[in-house]
Amino acid sequence: MTAEIKPIHQNGMVDVQNVRKIYRRDSQEITVLNGIDAQVAEGGFFALMGPSGSGKTTLLNLIAGIDRPTSGKVFVAGTDVSQLSEGRLAGWRSVNIGFIFQFYNLIPVLTATENVQLPLLLTRLSKKERRERALMALNIVGLTDRADHYPRQLSGGQEQRVAIARAIVTDPKVLVADEPTGDLDSKSAHEILDLFDALNNDLKKTIVMVTHDPRAAARAKICRHLDKGVMIDSEERELKDGVR
């Protein structure tokens, strides 16, 4: 029997409480995250920086519900995701999380619209409704004219915009982005970050982003640094309009 999971002691949209993540390889234990606490308010834009191997992506994966902490709690949108079963977690992700990857991760054999429609296959929407929703999402990212193009026919920036459209099409509560500008030239990166701003400010999407790029981190309302599995600062910057 599965116990009912109640959102207790939760602060904000994302609340990471004393999380540890240990990987075991043979007899060796590798501590990737060591007692992490972090909160992101609803509508927040949280950037996570740090050197390679510091545990940024692991923390992002825990928040996104595609990995489990060894100990501690991860509350997202009112649910302790560390307690959900594999099956329920998949369902939970389809409703609550939108993924944006460094290399876009579009399905090469599907057109832009079809890629954007993929998460909607997990909903009860009709085929027509799915296409309408996908076109709407593509409109938000400014790619309506590329709806029937395949990923290979798009530039890197356009591919990432399709990926963003795919991430927002189900209207998830949290967008998780892993190095979203890492594979882009500076102009495209700038456009993508503008889009993130719009999603955060206009659509009030909560964004959790891992990045190496200081320009990307500068767009976030909160930026934290991780090193060797530990948060090494508590710098929080309330960004004001025009300060970028």
Binding site: A64, I66, E86, G87, A90, G91, W92, R93, S94, V95, I97, F99, F101, F103, N105, I107, L118, P119, L121, L122
Partner: peptide
């Protein structure tokens, strides 16, 4: 493999 990971992350079940 990466496609499979992406689909699973989106919420497609095993």
């Amino acid at each position: 493999t990466c496609e499979i990971g992406t689909l699973r992350a989106m919420g497609f079940s095993r």
